[in-house]
Amino acid sequence: MTTPRFISMEGIARRYPAPGGGRTTIFEDLWLPVQRGEFVCVIGHSGCGKTTVLNILAGLDSPSEGTVIVDGQAISGPSLDRAVIFQGHALLPWRSVLGNVTFAVRSRWPDKPREWVEAQARRFIALVGLAGAERKRPAELSGGMKQRVGIARALSIEPKILLMDEPFSALDALTRGTLQDEVRRICLDTGQTTFMITHDVDEAMYLADRIVLMTNGPGACIAEIVENPLPRERDRTDLHRHPHYYTLRNHLLDFLVTRSRTFRDSPPPGYDRRHPPVVRPGAAPQPVPVPETGDTLPLAQFANRRHP
């Protein structure tokens, strides 16, 4: 295989019983591969099922159809391999900063000695710049600091995949920028595979290696996968001087403004849900050819064969 799929969503759908009988389909037939070490952002309007996709990936929700395969294994529930940073930080308010992080570390390594657990927790609290605030309760922290604790808690269990559900949407612009910088630094340094939900175009452009565009729900699907043409070493301050910056930004905005609405009813010719077109704004937008090898097989059929 040329591109080993670390995460593979294979034809997942989520349907809910509709009020008047029948079923509402939030999204269906979603196919998405993610490579190890990749930072993927999903963009779409409210109601397209982004959060549901993330919850399925986290194991908190299960798809009505299809499977998600992570590292060769179908997901059957939540796992310590996949850490979640929640939108509303979800800290336990009766525990201190240190208590919140040690709770996670202790869950991951129940048999390690107390000192080790505390040292691990302190290391990650320091990593997000909160050293010295270990004894504080969440109520004593600002919104940005709370989310930092949420990030430290997720990273402290050293997960294979980091899942983020609009983690910065409740923060002010300045705090959001700082936290984006830190998340980017940490993910680059550790080669963390990250899957993030957002509706902020600039956030996606700054953080992601690939940006997944989802059409409006109900019945949402992946319209295309945008490869980020910006260099991997990015600097927030002169990002907008990059020749492809506005090409990319306009492409994303165009999608959110019009194409997200019209895409489902009039998909481009040759559109295949299994292989959503991969585009690279700046270069001439063209679907990346899919190799005609075993790679086109869903990984589910693959997983049982050790030597394909």
């Binding site: 986290a58 796992s79 310590l80 929640f86 996670a104 869950s107």
Partner: peptide
Amino acid sequence: EWLNVARTLEVGPLRRAFLVILP
């Protein structure tokens, strides 16, 4: 969301009862 935190951390039923639900 607190229960979801416990679920994603694979916290066992006893630990969940005493460390999350009870407090």
